[in-house]
């Protein structure tokens, strides 16, 4: 066991370790199944798979309380599941079924599960950031002690609304954690071609909030750091914090396949991230017997979710005109 693993494992108990593994495994297998089913065209919705990046969502969400809230992006399957979003409803949503989390009207890019604190995901980059900030304002106005986490990618840093939102969150000392999932690419554009200051944390720091960069997708480090700041925000009325998590998308920007053949990035570059896959990393520390039991249960849960989606009806025609306005 290397030093980093020793420290990481030492920071949590067995139950917490198992929870991390379960969550990672559920997301990975679900997305692999989505990729398998995709060629059948039963999922008529663009899918932006999170495979390779799951540790960020899982690490952060396992550090939160059930009453906390997350806002995310179109690459949102991992976040939705990590925060406790209903798996059956997610798959049904991808299938366009009325039993989906958005009754088939939102699709993969607009997952939501309000009861579990998944407050929505947006197809337009950076769009949910100010919504998360506003939610934190609402919480503060109501003297609730929950916190909000805003997830976004490295591309969102370049949107004006990101800077505007950070400024306001700091100004009002709001209970929010900004989590930047930096996978280095906006579709196929390398970050070096997009940002004048090479370190994102250097760009954010001048707004006057704590910033932290976690360089290696280390799920323990992510969970521990977020847990410590979440506690401080809750207990000490601490304001916003910015966390940059370096990570890597294994598959193409959108769709179920790989894209190394395009030449904008190399397999070599990907290799080091695949070798430090957090799922495999945790796997070695779970007793085989327990692990097989966990995996079997989740495999079954996923099978059932896909069956549920297959068997669910499409929305009836009158659904077209419902929910334009709340009545």
């Amino acid at each position: 066991m290397n030093e980093q693993d020793k420290v990481g494992l030492g920071s949590l108990n067995e139950l917490e370790l198992y929870r991390l593994y379960e969550s990672l495994y559920r997301i990975r297998r679900t997305e692999e199944k989505i990729a398998d089913v995709y060629p059948t065209d039963k999922i008529k919705s663009p899918v932006h798979l999170s495979i390779g990046q799951e540790a960020v969502s899982v690490g952060v969400c396992e550090a939160l309380e059930p009453g906390d809230y997350v806002f995310g992006t179109y690459r949102g399957h991992a976040l939705y599941l990590a925060k406790g979003g209903d798996l059956k409803k997610m798959i049904a949503e991808l299938y366009g079924k009325v039993t989906g989390c958005a009754k088939g009207k939102g699709g993969s890019m607009h997952l939501v599960d309000v009861a579990n604190g998944v407050m929505g995901t947006s197809a337009v980059v950076a769009t949910t950031i100010p919504n998360a900030v506003g939610y934190a304002l609402g919480i503060k106005q109501q003297n609730r002690r929950n916190i909000v986490v805003s997830f976004f990618g490295d591309g969102a840093i370049e949107e004006g609304v990101f800077s505007e939102s950070i400024n306001f969150a700091v100004l009002k000392n709001l209970p929010i954690i900004f989590v930047c999932e930096n996978n280095n690419y906006a579709i196929h554009s390398d970050i070096a071609r997009r940002q004048s200051i090479s370190e994102i944390t250097d760009q954010v720091k001048p707004y006057g909030l704590p910033v932290r960069k976690i360089v290696d997708n280390d799920i323990f480090a992510i969970k521990n750091y977020v847990h410590s700041i979440a506690t401080q925000i809750r207990q000490n009325n601490m304001g916003p914090v910015f966390v940059e998590c370096m990570t890597y998308r294994w598959l193409e920007h959108v769709g179920p396949g790989s894209d190394f053949q395009l030449g904008y990035r190399s397999e070599d570059e990907a290799k080091k991230w695949m070798e430090t896959d957090q799922l495999l990393r945790l796997q070695q520390y779970i007793k085989d017997e327990d692990r097989l039991q966990i995996e079997h249960a989740i495999d079954e849960e996923i099978e059932k979710a896909f069956e549920f989606a297959e068997q669910s009806p499409f929305p009836s025609e009158d659904e077209l005109y419902t929910e334009i306005f709340k009545v």
């Binding site: 989906g100 989390c101 958005a102 009754k103 088939g104 009207k105 939102g106 607009h110 939501v112 599960d113 309000v114 407050m119 929505g120 419902t322 929910e323 334009i324 306005f325 709340k326």
Partner: peptide, 8 residues
């Protein structure tokens, strides 16, 4: 409201 199937 529409996109989230009435959840929000």
């Amino acid at each position: 409201h529409y996109m989230y199937g009435g959840q929000q």
